[in-house]
Design a protein around this nucleic acid. Structure first.
Lengths: 125, 125
DNA sequence: CAAACATATGAGCATGTGTTCATTTGTTGA
DNA sequence: TCAACAAATGAACACATGCTCATATGTTTG
C-alpha cells in the first residue's frame, strides 16, 4: 500500500518522509510573510478582552468609556487594546469632541467573528 | 445633537457614559464563557507554526515527520503544537503503524482559514 | 489661559507561550 | 525480546503579552 515504488532509488534514506505528500502540500502554499500576517491577524481575535470589544461593536459604534463600561475594565486597558485592534485594521476611529467613537472596520471582521462563534456553539452539542 | 434629553434627570453624573448605547450593545451579547471559548479558539490560529500546520493540511493528511519537514521545524515542536490543535478540535489523528496521520477536523477550519487569508490579501491593495 | 474631562501612551510587573533537550511511550520487524 | 524508529511528553528557559499605575496629549468650556 505504500507508494515507495514511485521514489527514486537513492531517496528515503532514514526518516519516514513521504516526498510526494510533502511536495503536494507545499505546492500553492502562501509564502511565509503572508502566513505570518495571517497568524498576527488571528492573534488579535485570540484575547478575551479584544473579543468582547469586537462583540460590543458588532451593531453600533461606541466611545472608549462606553466600551470600558460594557467590558467591565479600566479605560487604560481598553485603550491599549484598541490600539492593537486599530493596527490590525479591525476597528476604525471617529473623533467627536472629547470622545473617540470606535466601530468595526469592515464586514470581514463580523463574518469571522460569527463563523468562529458558530464553531464554538456547534461543539457543545 | 446629543440625546441627553432622553436621560432621567439624576443620571449621567460625571463620566461620558451613553447609557442607551451601552444597554443596546449588551443586549443579546453571548455570555462570558462563550466569548472566552471563542477567544481560546482564535488563539489557536494566532501562531505562525500552527497556521503553517493548518495550511499544510488544507488538502491532505500528513504524518508528524512530514509536517516537521514542510514547516521546517523539529518533531518535538510540531508534536507539541499538534497537541494544542487536537485539544481545540482543529485536527484529528489517524494512527497507522508507527506513524500518526493528521488532518483537519472539519470544514469550519478551512473556511475560517480562507476567510482570514482573504482579509490579509485584500489589505495589501 | 486654566480647569475639567476623554483618550493615549510609557514603564514595570506578573503571567503565558513556544521552543529545545532529554526522556518515555508505542509500534514494527528481525 | 530486543533494536530501530515514530511520536508524545515533561522540564527549563527565553520571550511575548496584558494589566495597572502614572502621566501626557488633546479638546471643550468657563
Amino acid at each position: 500500500m505504500t507508494d515507495s515504488n514511485k521514489l527514486p532509488i537513492d531517496f528515503c534514506e532514514e526518516t519516514c518522509v513521504h516526498t510526494d505528500s510533502i511536495a503536494h502540500s507545499m505546492r500553492g502554499m502562501p509564502d511565509l510573510d503572508t502566513l505570518f500576517s495571517l497568524a498576527e491577524f488571528f492573534k488579535v481575535f485570540g484575547d478575551t478582552t479584544r473579543i468582547r470589544i469586537i462583540c460590543a461593536l458588532l451593531e453600533d459604534e461606541l466611545c472608549v468609556c462606553d466600551l470600558a463600561e460594557v467590558v467591565g475594565m479600566g479605560q487604560s486597558a481598553i485603550s491599549h487594546q484598541l490600539r492593537l485592534l486599530r493596527a490590525a485594521h479591525l476597528v476604525r476611529v471617529r473623533r467627536e469632541g472629547k470622545s473617540s467613537f470606535y466601530s468595526l472596520d469592515d464586514d470581514h471582521v463580523r463574518l469571522i467573528f460569527k463563523q468562529g462563534l458558530n464553531h464554538i456553539l456547534e461543539e457543545n452539542d
